[in-house]
Nucleic acid binder design. Structure first.
Length: 402
DNA sequence: CGAGATTCATGTGAAGTATACCTTTAGGCTTAA
DNA sequence: AAGCCTAAAGGTATACTTCACATGAATCTCGTA
């Protein structure tokens, strides 16, 4: 019986007219053929990278701008074009794109270099080698390739905040050891004040050129959305005002185009699931909820065990007394929870660091306050909507066998 | 009453430890001449 | 004797612990008005 229903479901799914023609064009990793409203920046980047075509080392570039202002997009766009020309004319240039934020992929010096090597097609152990050795391997490979290497490091501000700027110093100095090849670095940062924290030496060599990406305004967002929507949807799938609303929502969030596109895509998916042929304005509100929800669920469920336990404890304590909570309370609850699922509890010192990491992830808000005579602590409050707390809690519970 | 000293609970930095993994090396075993 | 395999030795990165000191405003203390 069940099978039959399922069959029917799939049958009708196939017969259903899809809302999307090409969903890809709304996904965040999509690079359109032209990048609107970024002409100036594209020209700048292109101008700086152009010497690569004559096998001269382009200047290092530093790019700032809030999330979703088209930084990564612009860089990939320019790089792809340059790559095509380079290939056509047999000019040896290679790009590597790397996001430094990815946990356990590129969040330490060693891992970042190791990842670069992997991108170049050689495998290296995840641990065990001296960091210096990793550098040597990297230099060797690059040298053997005998070509210009352009490394794009997305969100380096996150990485530097965590492990310091020595890495960047080492990277910029690598050119001194290279005879046949050269390396250029393009650093992308969401934090506009980022370079202030850098060692002056690093700063001067890394930001030979600086480009600032201003946020899109609502009108620009609208035109971007229209352009992509034309590719993604069939005609007349969008109700009046949908684009405008998406743009307005995103403009409110410092002109984040990525968010605008995501809103539109998710709104489309919602409408499709409801068997509707038109995307209505109300779907955008639903989409906003869903995106936030998915983001939080994704972050919380992919954490390592101890992090999950810590988070679970914070949620529990927060729920019990819905005012601000403190590190000590969390640690107590955490220890209980560890006992319940037979996990060796970490020290409070470590938990303190874990709490700080959740703060960075935006799952909680924590600030250190002094309660005078009653000591100093972190004041923690949840940054996830209350409606989501039970759901997150049950998910954590399941995965922890609590 | 007010200036300074005290106090608390925990933040935070540095150094040490455990673990998992790496390469190197020495020894033992096998094999072929 | 040469070649191959294995296990021990010696090394590293990372996650965590231990130790020790730093913080900073509410509270306490005590001299003074």
């Amino acid at each position: 019986m069940v099978e039959k229903n399922l069959n029917k479901f799939f049958e009708s799914f196939l017969q259903k007219e899809p809302l999307f023609i090409n969903k890809k064009s709304l996904q965040s990793n999509y690079t359109p053929n032209n990048v609107p409203h970024r002409k100036e920046q594209i020209d700048l980047v292109a101008g700086i990278l152009a010497p690569a075509l004559r096998s001269d080392k382009p200047s290092n570039i530093f790019i700032y701008g809030k999330t979703g202002t088209g930084k990564s997009l612009t860089v990939t766009h320019v790089c792809e074009n340059l790559n095509q020309i380079a290939e056509k004319n047999k000019i040896p240039v290679k790009f590597i794109f790397l996001n430094c934020k990815l946990k356990r992929v590129a969040d330490t010096e060693y891992r970042l270099i190791a990842q670069l090597i992997r991108e170049l097609g050689q495998d290296v152990p995840a641990t065990g080698l001296p960091t210096e050795e990793i550098y040597k391997i990297f230099v060797n490979i690059v040298e053997k390739m005998d070509q210009l290497l352009i490394i794009v490091l997305d969100e380096i501000d996150q990485l530097v905040k965590k492990i310091g700027d020595e890495l960047l110093y080492n990277l910029t100095r690598l050119n001194a050891e290279l005879k046949e090849s050269q390396i250029s670095i393009i650093g992308i940062s969401n934090d506009l004040l980022f370079t202030d924290q850098l060692d002056p030496r690093v700063k001067s060599s890394l930001s030979e050129e600086e480009i600032v990406f201003p946020p899109y305004n609502a009108l620009q967002l609208q035109s971007i959305l229209r352009q992509r929507a034309k590719l993604a949807f069939k005609n007349e799938t969008l109700a009046e005002g949908v684009i405008e609303k998406c743009a307005a929502y995103a403009a409110r969030e410092h002109g984040d185009a990525r968010r605008a596109l995501e809103l539109l895509r998710v709104a489309g998916e919602i409408a499709e699931r409801k068997n509707l042929t038109v995307i209505a304005i109300s779907h955008i509100d639903e989409a906003e909820d869903k995106i936030e929800r998915d983001r939080i669920l994704d972050i919380t469920t992919t954490q390592p065990k101890q992090f999950k336990l810590a988070l679970y404890s914070m949620l529990t304590v927060c729920e019990k007394n819905n005012h601000k909570i403190f590190t000590g309370e969390v640690y107590e609850s955490y220890r209980d929870n560890c006992a319940r699922c037979a996990v060796q509890p970490l020290t409070q010192r470590r938990l303190s660091d874990i709490i700080a990491e959740f703060d960075m992830l935006g799952i909680i808000n924590a600030k250190t306050i002094s309660k005078g005579r009653y000591g100093r602590t972190r004041e923690i409050s949840l940054a996830i909507p209350l409606s989501l707390v039970p759901k997150v809690k049950t998910l954590l519970q399941e995965s922890l066998n609590l």
